[in-house]
Amino acid sequence: MSTEKVANRLVELCRKGDFETAMQELYSPEIVSIEPEGSQAPNAEGIQQVIEKAKHFADSVEEFHKNEVSDPVIAEDFFSVQMKMDVTFKGVGRTQMEEICVYGVKDGKITYEQFFYTPAPVNAG
C-alpha cells in the first residue's frame, strides 16, 4: 500500500473514531510512537505497547464531544495530519486538544508516529 493510501485510510478511520482498527490494520509490529517532552503519555515501541498506550488514553476519556482530522499532507514516505478533539476526561473535565501528527510509512505500514502538541501542565495539587 502506498503512503498516500495508508494516509487516506488512517484519516478515514480516525474521522470515524475507529483508532483500534487503524492500529490493527495500518501499524507495523515494530511501530515507534513519540510524545512531546513534558507529556504525561509515555513513548512506546512495538505494537503491543502502542495499543496499551491508546487503551490507557481511551480509558481516561469520559466523553468525546468532537473529533476532527485534516486531510493528509504527504511527502515521500511521510505524512502529517492535524487532529482536534473536544473531550471530557474523567476527573479532569472538558478539554480542547489540538496536535500535529507525523507518520512514517515503510512497506505499506506505519512504522513511526510522532505527536506535536503543548502538554497540559501537571497539577501540583
Results as ranks from 00 to 15, higher is better:
Met1Ser: 07
Ser2His: 09
Ser2Lys: 03
Thr3Gly: 12
Lys5Asn: 14
Ala7Gln: 04
Ala7Lys: 01
Ala7Met: 08
Asn8Glu: 10
Asn8Tyr: 03
Arg9Gln: 11
Glu12Asp: 15
Cys14Thr: 13
Cys14Asp: 06
Arg15Trp: 09
Arg15Leu: 08
Lys16Arg: 14
Gly17Phe: 00
Asp18Val: 05
Phe19Glu: 07
Glu20Tyr: 14
Thr21Glu: 12
Ala22Gln: 04
Ala22His: 10
Ala22Tyr: 09
Gln24Trp: 08
Gln24Thr: 13
Glu25Asp: 14
Tyr27Arg: 03
Ser28Asn: 03
Ser28Arg: 04
Ser28His: 11
Ser28Tyr: 12
Ser28Ile: 09
Pro29Glu: 14
Ile34Trp: 00
Pro36Leu: 10
Glu37Tyr: 13
Glu37Ser: 05
Ser39Ala: 00
Gln40Tyr: 14
Gln40Ile: 09
Gln40Glu: 13
Ala41Ser: 13
Ala41Gln: 08
Asn43His: 07
Glu45Gln: 11
Ile47Asp: 06
Ile47Trp: 05
Ile47Ala: 02
Ile47Arg: 05
Gln49Ile: 05
Ile51Pro: 10
Glu52Ile: 00
Glu52Gly: 03
Lys53Phe: 07
Lys53His: 04
Ala54Cys: 06
Ala54His: 15
His56Asp: 09
His56Ile: 10
His56Leu: 10
Ala58Glu: 04
Asp59Cys: 10
Val61Asp: 01
Glu62Asn: 03
Glu62Lys: 11
Glu62His: 08
Glu63Trp: 00
Glu63Arg: 08
Glu63Ser: 08
Phe64Asn: 01
His65Pro: 15
Asn67Ala: 06
Val69His: 13
Val69Thr: 15
Ser70Asn: 03
Ser70Phe: 07
Asp71Gly: 15
Asp71Val: 09
Pro72Phe: 00
Pro72Glu: 08
Ala75His: 10
Glu76Cys: 13
Asp77Ala: 03
Phe78Gly: 12
Phe79Pro: 06
Phe79Gln: 03
Val81Asn: 11
Met85Pro: 06
Met85Gly: 07
Met85Tyr: 15
Asp86Thr: 15
Asp86Phe: 05
Gly93Ala: 05
Gly93Asp: 10
Arg94Cys: 01
Arg94Lys: 15
Thr95Arg: 13
Thr95Leu: 08
Gln96Val: 07
Glu98Gln: 15
Glu99Trp: 00
Ile100Lys: 02
Ile100Gly: 02
Cys101His: 07
Val102Arg: 03
Tyr103Leu: 00
Gly104Leu: 05
Gly104Ile: 06
Val105Ser: 05
Lys106Ile: 12
Lys106Ala: 09
Lys106Gly: 06
Gly108Asn: 05
Thr111Tyr: 09
Glu113Tyr: 04
Gln114Pro: 11
Phe115Met: 09
Phe115Val: 14
Tyr117Lys: 04
Thr118Cys: 04
Thr118Asn: 12
Pro119Lys: 00
Ala120Arg: 04
Ala120Ser: 05
Pro121Gly: 00
Asn123Cys: 08
Ala124Leu: 12
